[in-house]
Amino acid sequence: MDWHPHVTVATLVENDGKFLFVEEIKHGRRVLNQPAGHLEKDESLLEAAYRETLEETQWRVEILGVVGIGLYTAPANGVTYHRTSFFARPIAFCPEQKLDSDIEQAIWLTPDELRKRRHQLRSPLVLECLERYLDGQRYPLTMIY
């Protein structure tokens, strides 16, 4: 077997009714995503979520729990992503942290603002994760081992 899913994490960060997203360039297109990325060798899922959030948004966060775990196969490349989505609150903005090179900016949006920009979503998982969170689908970190 030479098929392997890509293990990824995403972090939904809420502050006063707004959520932290990133605008990034993918395949020549400006898209919206949660701070997200791939798990690196010898890293836990939580460590990856903390790292990716800081690298992509300049925000340190406190991860509070899990929104969900899912699979997504990208139509553009056929790659299957195994994504664990966390929810968090912001702790500190760290302007000294340089943004990842493919990130245009980190932005705070209300759910309605994101819904209006759904044509810009990197994948359907972005809005799906937010809607699940808003529907109260929040699970303890103890489910991760």
Rank of each mutant, 00 (worst) to 15 (best):
Leu54Tyr: 06
Lys98Trp: 03
Val67Gln: 00
Phe19Lys: 05
Ala49Gln: 03
Asp100Val: 07
Lys26Tyr: 00
Val13Tyr: 04
Glu14Asp: 09
Trp3Tyr: 12
Gly68Lys: 01
Val79Asn: 05
Cys94Asn: 09
Phe87Met: 08
Thr8Arg: 11
Ser101Asn: 11
Gly37Thr: 05
Arg83Met: 12
Ala74Thr: 00
Ile107Val: 15
Glu47Ser: 15
Phe93Ala: 00
Glu55Arg: 13
Arg29Pro: 04
Glu104Pro: 01
Glu24Tyr: 06
Val22Gln: 05
Pro95Tyr: 10
Glu14Ile: 10
Thr57Glu: 01
Arg117Ser: 03
Tyr72Ser: 00
Trp108Gln: 06
Thr84Cys: 12
Ala88Thr: 01
Ala10Met: 11
Ser101Phe: 09
His38Tyr: 06
Gln34Gly: 03
Tyr139Ser: 07
Gly68Ile: 11
Gly65Lys: 07
Pro5Arg: 05
Glu40Asp: 11
Gly68Ser: 10
Ser85Thr: 15
Gln120Glu: 14
Ile91His: 07
Asp100Ile: 00
Val22Pro: 00
Arg138Phe: 04
Phe87Trp: 14
Phe86Thr: 03
Gly136Lys: 08
Leu127Ala: 02
Val13Ser: 02
Leu20Arg: 05
Glu128Thr: 12
Pro111Ala: 07
Arg138Glu: 07
Asp102Arg: 10
Val126Lys: 00
Thr110Met: 06
Ile69Trp: 12
Thr53Glu: 08
Glu62Asn: 13
Lys26Trp: 04
Glu24Met: 08
Ala48Gly: 11
His27Cys: 01
Val31Cys: 04
Leu32Pro: 01
Pro5Glu: 09
Gly136Arg: 08
Pro75His: 05
Leu45Trp: 13
His38Leu: 08
Glu131Thr: 09
Gly37Met: 09
Asp16Trp: 09
Arg60Pro: 02
Glu56Cys: 08
Phe93Ile: 06
Asp42Ala: 14
Trp59His: 11
